[in-house]
């Protein structure tokens, strides 16, 4: 739990005159599951995009294992955005094959995940329903052998009944020991039991960062209660 995987140092991002992120600093340690919690427009997606090198920060830097985020570092980071980002004309299996050209891809895990998510490999991605496209994104992500996963609202398209079940199964069956997961979400209730640490982001600034158990003890309530307290 002590090896530092990712370090975000004094990160700021301005769009025009507006600050999307302002002086954000935190670290992620090996094997942790961290919840990046906040309302819409709080800067969660911007933060993930900057970590992934999709956006350039206005100020500050991101280090992965002590080095800047380069293509070499990206081999160990997998980003799952909220949007449909995969090629809609590709079949489910074709997309996996395409990804396997860039990452260390575990095909046996992919087959198990396909089965687990009930994904039809013969369908094109555009033929899948929204919920199944979300499942596909998660299945593809966990088939890639990386050290850090960045999820942006991974459960938003999945029905409420399946969410916790999926998360539970995924984390117990498919996540390897030592893999770090940063989940950005506002569906706090579904994820809170899995989180080791939480970061509350509001108007581009970190307003709270702590271990989940410490927070529960300090505020005598669930993470959802604390979230409500901070954001209402």
């Amino acid at each position: 739990m002590n090896e530092k995987i990712l370090e975000v140092i004094n990160l700021s991002k301005k769009f025009g005159r507006k600050f999307a992120l302002n002086g954000v600093s935190f670290s992620l340690f090996k094997g942790e599951i961290i919840g990046l919690l906040g309302e819409n427009g709080s800067g969660k997606t911007t933060l993930l995009r900057i970590i992934m090198g999709i956006l350039k920060p206005s100020k500050g830097k991101v280090m992965f294992k002590g080095e800047k985020i380069t293509e070499k570092a990206k081999l160990n980071i997998f980003y799952v955005p909220e949007k449909d980002i995969y090629y809609q004309n590709m079949k489910v299996d074709e997309m996996a094959e395409f990804l396997s050209n860039f990452y260390r891809f575990d095909f046996s895990k992919w087959r198990s995940l396909k089965k687990f998510f009930n994904l039809n490999e013969n369908l094109k991605i555009k033929q899948l329903s929204r919920g199944y496209r979300e499942r596909l994104k998660i299945a593809l992500a966990f088939s890639c052998d990386v050290e850090l996963y960045l999820f942006d609202e991974p459960l938003s398209g999945i029905d409420p009944v399946s969410r916790s079940k999926i998360l539970d199964m995924l984390l117990s069956e498919f996540v390897e020991k030592g893999q770090t997961i940063l989940i950005s979400t506002h569906l706090v209730e579904e994820v809170e039991s899995f989180l080791d640490r939480v970061i509350f982001l509001k108007n581009g600034e970190i307003i709270l960062e702590s271990y989940a158990d410490d927070l529960r003890e300090k505020y005598k309530g669930s993470i959802l209660d604390i979230y409500k307290k901070f954001f209402s």
Binding site: M52, I54, E71, Y79
Partner: peptide, 14 residues
């Protein structure tokens, strides 16, 4: 247009 550019930018490719 198809949003796939975000995927391309996230790949470990220059």
């Amino acid at each position: 247009r198809e949003n796939t550019v975000e995927f391309l930018l996230s790949l470990p490719v220059k």
